[in-house]
Design a protein around this nucleic acid. Structure first.
Lengths: 300, 300
DNA sequence: TATTCCGATAGTGAC
DNA sequence: GTCACTATCGGAATGAG
């Protein structure tokens, strides 16, 4: 196989072989991981028996109540993943268990963009800043997920851009040599034998929006380069590149923090995440600039 | 010849036969009139000798000075008609003499839209409200032109829409009978022999903009129906359908009149000139409504 | 602060 | 207050049968 052109290499083709060993994927059925990342298959969650979940009926009641009054609200679009990850709607489910579903964002704002969806109905409509600031146990669980999913996102960045990256070249060439050797090591043994290469984790951010527009609680994990056709207007960009995004490592917020009330944040200037250049309200110019920064960034 | 579809009958095809006798066109070389309305030919003005006009050289100097500093200002776009009507630029010249040039507006905002352009360079940049309020002799000359050109515009409306008009039917049928008689009367004798038909003059307005955007003094004469693809946005419509247009019959304004300072007129609501319906800022809806009103209006 | 469509609004550059 | 082009900003609908 020759190198892929950059604009045709975005299909997730992660395999179990590509999974970095530092990702404790074994906690969460790594096969489901990688197969779901491929949008090919999913596995029923072990506890998905029809009778064991009282929330299941109440959730259905809730959904029906919403549709009974009229039309469905597009802001409720995440509920189908939360209630029926086993259906793998739109092929977006990456993994799930009793507590969380992880999906690829339907309108990704970066090369990698995952959402963590808590499944506990009592958490659906909690304000993310309040919850993550006041529920240490929940925060801790999320941090565990985020750490592991950051590795997943980093490996996906490596898959997409490793061949273009100068600083990843040692890893890439060592991997190629290893895989073409007569007796390749097992996947779990590989990482320890490879040079570190580029730290793709540094390009992954996780956090929540101060005022989410999708109704159900969700945590974003995405790469920071913001190279995506779905970044279409100012608020798309600002919502991931200002304090409107509260990153996981910033929690818990102190009570009464100004972060709870960002004011007229859509009026803030847009500044390049990489070089800091200020583009004011000129979104198109920012987009053109991001295209240039992307080309430089991926070659780092 | 069968009846023309309404959307293909806009080409000016006025002939000398069509000129209403009440238009004192003979004062202004009616042949030039009609031929220029056809955008086919023009005649040099009698006084256009190279040496008899000191303004001519000063005007050329002015033009050169403007172009010398760089590019020409599109707001000076009327100067070519004023200085060189004999060239009949773009075929838009309707008539001219030593004092005025009459052209068809390059971006007509109605079925008929003429401009009167005074040729005296000392008047070019006079404020139209001030000039028409304080120079009775000038106002009088303009009124004479406007009266005659209103007749011309009315005859053009008759040409375009007479066949569709219920109230013009007596005129139209009498004209047809007259022209198919064995011995048709001369053009100048016809009007006295025809019934009046529809009063198309009532649909013609004349006036000036309080803050013209074209630099050289110009007076508008146009039909009021505002049916034109060049009416493209709110200010186009408001500028002819509010007190921002000062009609000729309103002059002279009293000194200190509020008409000199219309304030934030582009924020005013748009209301239908015919039925008074208020469209606020909804230009597209107004446009659709004007289309309906046009169909009714022309059939009156 | 979900997308999408449509339209109103605003700034620019023309030459 | 020209036109024409681009882009920004703003509201409203948004499904399913």
């Amino acid at each position: 196989m020759g190198p892929c052109p950059s604009d045709s290499s975005k299909q997730p083709v992660i395999t179990a072989e590509d999974m970095p060993s530092q990702a404790p994927a074994s906690q969460k059925r790594p096969n489901a991981f990688t197969e779901l990342m491929n949008a090919r298959a999913k596995k029923p969650r072990p506890s998905d028996s029809p009778s064991d979940s009282p929330e299941q009926s109440s959730k259905s009641t809730y959904t029906k109540a919403k549709t009974a009054v009229g039309f469905s609200d597009p802001r409720d679009g995440l509920i189908v993943y939360i209630e029926h990850p086993e259906r793998n709607p739109d092929g977006r489910v990456v993994e799930y268990d009793d507590d969380f579903v992880v999906i690829r964002d339907k309108f990704p704002k970066a090369s990698v963009h995952l959402l963590i969806l808590p499944r506990d109905p009592s958490l659906y409509f909690r304000h993310p800043l309040e919850l993550l600031s006041n529920d240490p146990a929940f925060l801790s669980k999320i941090q565990t997920y985020v750490s592991r999913l950051t590795d997943l996102a980093a490996s996906e960045l490596r898959r997409q851009y490793g061949a273009d990256s100068a600083s990843d070249a040692p890893y890439q060439s060592a991997l190629e040599a290893m895989m073409s050797s007569p007796d390749p090591p097992s996947p779990s043994a590989r990482a320890a034998l490879l040079p570190p290469g580029r730290d793709w984790r540094a390009d992954v951010v996780a956090g929540v929006h101060t005022h989410p527009s999708m109704n159900h609680l969700h945590i974003h994990i995405l790469s920071r380069e913001q190279h995506s056709p779905w970044v279409k207007h100012k608020k798309h960009y600002l919502s991931f590149n200002t304090s409107f995004l509260v990153q996981l490592h910033e929690f818990p917020l102190e009570e009464g923090s100004v972060r709870f009330h960002p004011g007229k944040w859509p009026n803030w200037d847009m500044t390049c995440w990489r070089c800091g250049q200020n583009f004011g309200n000129q979104f198109k110019k920012l987009k053109a600039h991001l295209e240039e920064e992307f080309e430089t960034w991926k070659r780092e």
